[in-house]
Simulated assay, not measured.
Amino acid sequence: MLNDNLEQQLMLLYDYWFIQFDFPDNNGNPYQISGGKMVWNDTLRRNIPENWKVQSVISNCLSSVIKPGVKIFNTKTYLATADVKGTSISTGTIVDYDGRESRANMQPSINSVWFAKMKNSIKHLYLNKEMQPIISSSILSTGFCGLQCNEISFEYIASYVSNAYFEIHKDMLAHGATQEAVNNDDLAGVHIIIPEDTVLCAYHETTQAIYAQISKNVCENQELVKLRDWLLPMLMNGQATIND
Rank of each mutant, 00 (worst) to 15 (best):
M1W: 13
N3W: 01
N5C: 11
L6S: 04
Q8G: 06
Q9P: 08
M11N: 15
D15S: 10
F21V: 06
F21T: 00
D22V: 04
D22T: 04
P24I: 02
N27C: 10
N27D: 15
G28V: 01
N29H: 12
P30T: 04
P30A: 09
Y31S: 02
K37N: 10
M38V: 03
W40F: 12
R46L: 03
N47Q: 12
W52L: 08
K53E: 13
V54L: 03
S59G: 10
L62P: 04
K67M: 13
K67L: 14
V70T: 09
V70A: 02
F73R: 08
N74T: 15
T75R: 13
Y78V: 00
T81Q: 05
D83N: 15
K85M: 13
G86W: 08
I89M: 06
I89G: 01
S90M: 08
G92K: 01
T93Y: 09
T93D: 10
V95E: 05
Y97Q: 07
G99I: 03
G99Q: 01
G99Y: 06
R100D: 03
S109T: 12
S109E: 15
S112V: 05
S112L: 06
V113Q: 01
F115M: 06
K117C: 07
K117W: 01
M118T: 14
K119I: 08
H124S: 10
N128T: 02
K129D: 15
E130C: 10
M131N: 09
P133K: 02
S136G: 08
S138K: 02
L140A: 03
L140H: 05
G143H: 10
Q148S: 12
C149V: 07
E151P: 03
I152P: 01
I152L: 11
I157E: 04
A158T: 02
S159E: 05
Y160W: 13
Y160V: 11
V161M: 01
N163T: 09
Y165G: 00
Y165M: 04
F166R: 00
E167V: 12
I168E: 13
K170G: 07
D171R: 02
M172D: 13
H175S: 11
G176A: 03
E180L: 12
E180H: 09
N183S: 09
N184S: 14
D185Q: 14
D185G: 13
D186S: 04
L187V: 10
A188V: 11
G189K: 13
V190W: 00
I194V: 12
P195F: 07
D197F: 12
T198R: 14
Y203D: 08
T206A: 13
T207Q: 00
T207M: 02
Q208M: 14
S215T: 09
S215V: 05
N217M: 11
V218S: 08
C219T: 10
E220S: 15
Q222P: 06
L227M: 13
R228W: 10
L232D: 07
L232P: 05
P233M: 04
M234N: 10
M236D: 14
M236A: 13
A240D: 05
A240P: 01
